[in-house]
């Protein structure tokens, strides 16, 4: 097997100067487990970037380092920098709450709160004291529209979120994230529990969102990465093996490991 180091990782676009997210020499440990090793990754604004790799390669940890959700894990340690709009979020005086407001996150399993549809979307704006009354109603409506859910729920906003189907619940979670006016949306295998139809809707939505937001999606579904993303990163055993234009990565991967992974020889 070819020796991998970050040096021979294939980057198509290391020339980007105006990266929205710029990960530099990022290392993460959980206890003694070195999960991410010297990751360098520049993510462009208003694109969809897919992070793929076999289970346990560190892809979820990587996106969770972008909104500092790893901080919540006992015994986690981070070394390196993550710049968002040129500001290192691992600076000591970073306001993590404001950071997480700016970065929406959608999880593997739809996880609406056990509240009404309306309350789910209004939760974020409420805790950040962004709006109340009519203004809050407007935010809820706008977010649900952006998440392509409004037409399906406008007559039952005060029903429980659990009355929705799985795909609808996931779009509700997207609306909830959009309500706090984020700039970046992180998605951690958002379709893994959905059927093909619901998946297709989320994927189409995701493409549309990338006109306004910077989207980073973790997926173990290669075809999904190929369908939705502009750029694809391949992570293997905590290292970034390949990163580049999605068309290029899927048609002509530069690394032998990527080739083996995407053609299904391992993983």
């Amino acid at each position: 097997m070819k020796q991998i180091s970050t040096k021979n990782c294939t980057h198509d676009d290391l020339m980007v100067n105006d990266a929205k997210i710029d990960v530099r020499k990022l290392n993460v440990w959980f206890g003694d487990n070195h999960v991410l090793k010297d990751i360098n990754l520049k993510i462009r604004e208003k694109t969809v970037t897919a992070i793929m790799g076999p289970s346990g390669c560190g892809k979820t940890t990587l996106i969770r380092s972008i909104n500092r959700m790893n901080d919540l894990i006992n015994g986690s340690r981070t070394l390196g920098e993550v710049y968002i709009d040129g500001y290192n979020i691992y600076e000591r005086n970073t306001n993590v709450y404001e950071l997480r407001r700016k970065i929406g996150m959608v999880f593997q399993k739809p996880n609406p709160f056990p509240k009404s549809i309306y309350e789910n979307v209004a939760f974020g704006p409420k805790i950040h004291k962004m709006a109340r009354g009519k203004e809050l109603d407007d935010i809820v409506e706008k977010s649900l529209k952006e998440a392509a859910l409004w037409d399906e729920v406008k007559d039952r906003l005060h029903n429980s979120a659990f009355s929705l189907s799985g795909g609808q619940q996931q779009r509700l979670c997207i609306a909830r994230a959009l309500a706090v006016k984020p700039e970046i949306i992180l998605m951690d295998e958002p379709c893994s529990s959905l059927d093909p139809t619901a998946t297709a809707r989320i994927e189409a939505l995701l493409r549309r969102l990338s006109e306004k937001y910077t989207v980073v999606i973790v997926t173990h579904n290669l075809q999904q990465a190929a369908r939705v993303s502009d750029f694809t990163a391949f992570l293997y055993m905590g290292k970034l093996v390949e990163y580049g234009d999605t068309k290029r990565v899927f048609e002509n991967p530069q690394s032998e490991l990527t080739e083996k992974y995407i053609t299904g020889e391992f993983g």
Partner: peptide
């Protein structure tokens, strides 16, 4: 998952505990 969702929205631990 509820806690993670709230924290990822920028809620503090107390807000998460209290509201969720």
């Amino acid at each position: 998952e509820y806690r993670e969702a709230a924290l990822a929205l920028g809620a503090t631990r107390w807000q998460t505990t209290w509201h969720i």
